[in-house]
Structure formats: structure tokens, C-alpha cells
Design a protein around this nucleic acid. Structure first.
Length: 642
RNA sequence: GCCCAUGUAGCUCAGUCGGUAGAGCACGUCCUUGGUAAGGACGAGGUCACCGGUUCGAUUCCGGUCGUGGGCUCCA
């Protein structure tokens, strides 16, 4: 006698057990048709799920995020079914839903080709059109293992064998194909109407690089064709704002074969880079940091003492010199800063000592990890180290966290996620010291009132850390800022201060970076703004354009004057039509285009146009300068273009 | 590091079933003096990533190396 309570609070009573599908049909034929799954007491189930008890039930359609997940998961199954039909020797493994779509990993004796992909997709379309019923059944674990082993599906058998005894094993079938799955799934394959296979890739079995390489097929799926097309369009748009592409278009930097993972900064890119440094110099100077510079090349012995050589050695560049010494190119700035701290006797009265450096570090990253400016082998950190007493940890961590979040706001990043990364397997320092460091950072985070998620085992080898994560235009997450508590390094490198009882004490060291890598932050900024950097960061803030050569003298004079006032301004006197010049500088994302024709020259004016095509009318050069000055000073919060 | 793809002019890309290559844009010269996203003509530009092999002959076929791209692993 199940009584079923619906989301709107209404109840339906049945005199026999009913399926979700029947309930949906009872509510209305339209809903029954649109239904993909049910949610019983908060748990997702199939349409065929039989309800015998009193429950609350919601019918899940494609309007529900969970419905979209069901569609994607079922499309992954459809993919596997198609692959098994076309390539019976291929073995299936796993096929989860991911952001934007799904993938399925297969073991196969040869790589899939783009032609295979097209054939698979075509077969999937046929199978969807056949509208095969999707059925669920339970099977005892041992029987399921045997069932898949008999079919040569050793990966599936391995997965089932690793499922705890207590969990039930459910199998889903559609047509001639059966797969292990927790479910739920769409009631029939006809519900899958809009999908596309997007790419092929390799992936390790169970994500372990010691395991064999499987072949992963990525795809995306949506409730309808329109949403699929919109998604594909979004991908295209994201590609247009790829920092590598914009870097080329705007002539900001380049990379070349001879220096994999190292950047050749062009004049315009370097202006932006320096603007970032200038900004950070100002902010951290105000926060009590003193800027220093430590050697890039130091004797390997120092890196052995710090523990870097042992824990980080495979990522370090080493060089042997004619004097038979081995030097290491610094992969981190901390040991250098400790040397500066420990030079001379330090008193507790001096603490906190805050040292900062725009330090260029080199790390030999695996070749496959390199990615534009996002992942390089030579990069610049806005690195800083605070030498403090244990009592100062909470306050100092709070100050750093507030500073980081405030700085991100200046660049338009409001949504920042914070992760707490605790002790990694490869580490230095005793467990007691780690307990203390983790507790201290945790307490400081709580005191600062920030929310964070746990990133297990991802701390630095010398201490736990907070990671500040930004999301880029294509939806990828990038760790930028970091804050680490370190009870180990000062000890290993022999740093001390004298406390108020004239005793030698070891300071606690905080490592922090806000941009993290300037190269990466630069790339994220470019993508975030699609190249349209705010004027205070733009390499060229305005271009003065002549219409004919009669304005040359005036244009030169105005440009010179603006330059003398500290603005980054160029002129364009080329023998081209004004439309051509406008187009070109707009494509170069120059914030302001200042046009001078005969009329403007006669009245000492400039016709001001923005890169987004807005006409701001005419104004005299002094007025423009004043307004631009305000915009730059407010870092874009007060914008000339309105 | 691993899997797959890929490397032709400054850029974006054609092309050569093996006989040393072409377009558009950019660049140079000239014509045009034109009012808010491409005016026109002519010209110059490439050891077809690098090293080997097969071949009378390789940019093209094969092998390797390096780089790049998409993933995996790793990470700021």
C-alpha cells in the first residue's frame, strides 16, 4: 500500500507496489515521456524501480542536473555497446560521467583512429534509434566475476572483485550488451538524442602510471541538439581565448624548440609582466615585506642539506663547473631566503621577518606536462618567506590569506577555492612536527574564517599548505597562491633567533606566493579577459590615429605629450584608411583609439573610441589624459569606457 | 615519462600517388589623402623540424630524435 509523496507535497496512494514509471504515468503522460529516472528519499533509481513502501519521490527529467548525469552515463554505456559490436576483442573497463560529458576506457590491441571514432559514433546513433530497453538485474558477486571472466572481460572482473561483499552487484543490459554498473540509467536508449565523441587519448588503468595504457574515448551528451550545439560553440569560444593564441596575436611572447618550457618575452608581453611585478611590489611592500634577491646557482651541498636534492632531485637542473663543483639551479627560493635570514644574529624583536623575491626558478618537468605558459620549466614566483615565532602563526597566516584574496579581487577573481593539503608520502620531518604544523595551519585557517576542502597527501615535502585555486576560461582549475607552514627547513638549514631569555630558538617559516607563477597568472589573466586586459595592464593603452598626413604633426605632438605623462601611447601615421587602422588596433585589443582628422586638429580635440566599438565623442587631450589617469589609478574600477 | 596525433613562408593552412612547393594575411615598393573593423597594383619570402635508411632521385615512403597539440601520470 505505498503512499508516495511528491515534491509539491501532494500524495498518491496505490494498492499494489508500483514502478517509478507507473507513478510518472499516473501523474501525466507528458511527464512519463520526459522521465529519465526517479529520486526516492533522495536516492536516484531507475524508472523500472519497484516501490513497495511509503516514500517521497521526485521524477527526474533532463531539466534536473541529475537527469543530465543519467543521460551522460547512459551514453557512455551506449559507446561501450557500440565499441563491443564493432570491435568484439576490445575489453571494457570504466566509463564515468565527467564535467561536460563522459569517457570510457577500453583495452584494445591497437589504437583507435579518428575513422574508428566516426564509425563508433554512427553505430551509437543506430543503437539509440533502435530505442532498446535498458534492464537491470542483480547478481551475486562471485557469479558476476565468473560472468565477465567468461566473456574475457578481465578488467570488469577485477573491478567486481574489488567491490565490498556488502554492496549489491547490479548489471545493466541493453540489446545484446551487458555491463556492470551502479546505475541508474535511462529507461531506453531512445532517450539519448544528442551526443558527440570528442577525442581520443591514452589513460593508465586505474590511473597508475605503472599500469598498462588504455584507450580513452571522450564524448559529450546533452538533452537535445540545441544544447549540444551550444556546448560545442562554447568550446570554440574558449579556444579563441587560449593564451597561446592571444600571445601570438598580440605579439606578447613565444616559445621555441631550443628552450622547451621557457619563455621568450617580447616587448609588449614584458610590459604586462612588469606591470604585474610592479603591482605586487606595491602591495607586499605595504604589507611589510622586504624584497631581496638570492643566487640562482648554488652549490648542490646546500640543496642536499635542505632536503631538496633527495626529495626533489629528479626535477632539478645540475651543472658541473671546471672547478669540479656541482651547482644546482634553484627550483625554489626558500633556501636562499634562509641564508639571508641567518646572516647575522636575529632577535625575537625583529620577527616577523618577511622576505620577498621575484625569483626565477627552474624545474625539470616531464615533457608531457608542459603546456604553454601554464606549465613551464622556468618560471618566476612572487615568492615570500616569513620567519616568525610559533605564537605568530595564526595572525601571520590570517594576514597572508586576507592579502591573497584581496589581491585576486583587483584582477577580477572573486570566486577562489581554497584547499588544505596535508602531509605527502615523500616528506621530511617527524610525524610529531607534521602534527604540529598541520594543527597550526588548520587553526589559523579556522581563525581566519575561510572555507576549505581537504586535499589529502598533497602538501609540500616540508610542510602542509593552503592552495588558492582559480578557474580558467576553459573551466580548468589552476593553483595560484599558496601558503605553507614549515617547522623543518629553518632547522635543517640552521636558522635561529635569540628569544627574550637570550636562548637560541628556531623560527617557524611560512612560505607564500600569491600569483604563484607569474607566467601562469599572466596566462590565466589573458584567458580571463580574452586578451582585453584592463588599461592599467595593457601594453599599449591608446593609439593616436591620423586620417590623412595633414594631421601628422598634431598626432605626433599629442602622442608625445601623453607619453611624457607616463601613458603607454603609440601613434599610427601610416598611409592607410582610418577604417583599416581601427580594425587593426581593435584586433590588438588597444583600449582606446584616438582619431584626429582636420576637424579635431582645428579644435585641439581627439575623437575617442573604445576597443569594444563605443564612441565616447570628442574631448581635448588633457581631458582624456585626466580620465585615463583616474582609470589606471583605480585599476579599472573607474572606467573611462563606462 | 606514457598513449595518440602532428611539424610546409612571420601567421593560418593547401599540396606533392617520390622528380626540391602554393594561397590568404602579414612584410617591401608604388598608386591612392581616404572620417571609425580590411582601397588597389607589383614584389620579395621556404635546405618542406632535425638525423639516418630505402631509391637514379625523398619535403613526400620507413626508422629514430626533438618540438608542439590532446589526454594520462605529475605539478606553481
Amino acid at each position: 500500500m505505498p503512499v508516495i509523496t511528491l515534491p509539491d507535497g501532494s500524495q498518491r496512494t496505490f494498492d499494489h507496489p508500483v514502478t517509478v514509471d507507473e507513478v510518472a504515468g499516473d501523474i501525466g503522460p507528458g511527464l512519463r515521456k520526459a522521465a529519465l529516472a526517479g529520486r526516492i528519499n533522495g536516492k536516484l533509481v531507475d524508472m523500472s524501480h519497484l516501490i513497495a513502501q511509503d516514500v517521497t519521490l521526485a521524477i527526474v527529467t533532463d531539466k534536473d542536473p541529475a537527469g543530465l548525469e543519467v543521460i551522460r552515463h547512459s551514453t557512455a554505456h551506449l559507446l561501450a555497446q557500440a565499441v563491443k559490436q564493432l570491435f568484439p576483442e576490445a575489453q571494457v573497463t570504466i566509463g564515468p560521467v565527467i564535467e561536460g560529458g563522459f569517457f570510457y576506457d577500453f583495452a584494445f590491441h591497437r589504437p583507435f583512429t579518428p575513422e574508428d571514432l566516426a564509425a563508433i559514433e554512427a553505430r551509437m546513433a543506430e543503437l539509440a534509434k533502435a530505442d532498446e530497453k535498458v534492464t537491470r538485474r542483480l547478481m551475486p558477486r562471485d557469479e558476476a566475476v565468473r560472468f565477465f571472466k567468461d566473456q574475457g572481460e578481465v578488467y570488469k572482473a577485477e573491478i567486481i572483485a574489488s567491490i565490498p561483499d556488502t554492496d549489491e552487484i547490479s548489471l545493466y543490459g541493453q540489446g545484446d550488451w551487458v555491463d556492470l554498473c551502479r546505475g541508474p540509467h535511462v529507461p531506453s536508449t531512445g532517450k539519448l538524442k544528442a551526443f558527440k565523441l570528442t577525442k581520443l587519448a591514452g589513460a593508465y588503468w586505474r590511473g597508475d602510471s605503472r599500469n598498462e595504457m588504455l584507450q580513452r574515448i571522450y564524448g559529450t551528451a546533452w538533452p537535445d541538439k540545441k544544447q549540444l550545439d551550444e556546448y560545442l560553440h562554447r568550446l570554440e569560444e574558449a579556444e579563441k581565448r587560449d593564451h597561446r593564441r592571444i600571445g601570438k596575436e598580440l605579439d606578447l611572447f613565444h616559445l621555441q624548440e631550443e628552450a622547451p618550457g621557457a619563455v621568450f618575452w617580447h616587448p609588449k608581453g614584458w610590459i604586462i609582466f612588469q606591470a604585474l611585478i610592479g603591482y605586487m611590489r606595491e602591495r607586499q611592500g605595504a604589507a611589510g615585506y622586504e624584497e631581496v634577491s638570492a643566487p640562482e646557482l648554488m652549490d648542490a651541498a646546500l640543496w642536499a642539506q635542505s632536503g631538496h636534492l633527495e626529495k626533489f632531485g629528479e626535477n632539478m637542473y645540475l651543472t658541473k663547473t671546471p672547478d669540479e663543483r656541482t651547482y644546482a639551479l634553484k627550483p625554489m627560493n626558500c633556501p636562499g631566503h634562509v641564508q639571508i635570514f641567518k646572516h647575522g644574529l636575529r632577535s625575537y624583536r625583529e620577527l616577523p621577518v618577511r622576505l620577498a623575491e621575484f625569483g626565477k626558478v627552474h624545474r625539470y618537468e616531464p615533457s608531457g606536462a608542459l603546456h604553454g605558459l601554464m606549465r613551464v620549466r622556468a618560471f618566476t614566483q612572487d615568492d615570500g618567506h616569513c620567519f616568525i615565532t610559533e605564537e605568530q602563526i595564526t595572525e601571520e597566516c590570517g594576514a597572508i590569506t586576507r592579502l591573497i584574496l584581496d589581491i585576486y579581487k583587483d584582477f577580477g577573481f572573486e570566486d577562489v577555492r581554497i584547499k588544505f593539503a596535508d602531509r605527502p608520502p615523500k616528506r621530511v620531518g617527524s610525524d610529531e612536527v607534521w602534527d604540529k604544523a598541520e594543527a597550526a595551519l588548520m587553526a589559523a585557517s579556522r581563525a581566519a574564517g575561510i572555507e576549505f576542502t581537504l586535499n589529502k597527501g598533497e602538501g609540500a615535502f616540508y610542510g602542509p599548505k593552503l592552495e588558492f585555486v582559480l578557474r580558467d576560461a576553459i573551466g580548468r582549475d589552476w593553483q595560484c597562491g599558496t601558503l605553507q607552514v614549515d617547522f623543518t627547513m629553518p632547522e635543517r638549514l640552521g636558522a635561529h633567533y635569540i628569544d627574550d631569555h637570550s636562548a637560541k630558538r628556531t623560527p617557524v617559516m611560512l612560505h607564500r606566493a600569491m600569483f604563484g607563477s607569474l607566467e601562469r597568472f599572466f596566462a590565466i589573466l589573458l584567458e580571463h579577459h580574452a586578451g582585453k586586459l584592463p588599461a592599467w595592464l595593457s601594453p599599449v593603452q591608446a593609439v593616436v590615429l591620423s586620417i590623412t598626413d595633414r594631421q601628422d604633426e598634431y598626432v605626433r605632438r599629442v602622442t608625445e605629450s601623453l607619453k611624457n605623462q607616463g601613458f603607454r601611447v603609440e601613434h599610427d601615421l601610416r598611409n592607410e584608411k582610418v577604417g583599416f587602422k581601427i580594425r587593426e588596433h581593435t584586433l590588438k585589443r588597444v583600449p582606446y583609439l584616438l582619431v584626429a582628422g582636420d576637424k579635431e586638429v582645428a579644435a585641439n580635440l581627439l575623437a575617442v573610441r573604445t576597443r569594444s566599438g563605443k564612441d565616447l565623442g570628442t574631448m581635448d587631450p588633457e581631458t582624456f589624459a585626466e580620465r585615463l589617469r583616474i582609470e589606471l589609478k583605480s585599476r579599472g574600477r573607474q572606467v573611462l569606457e563606462g
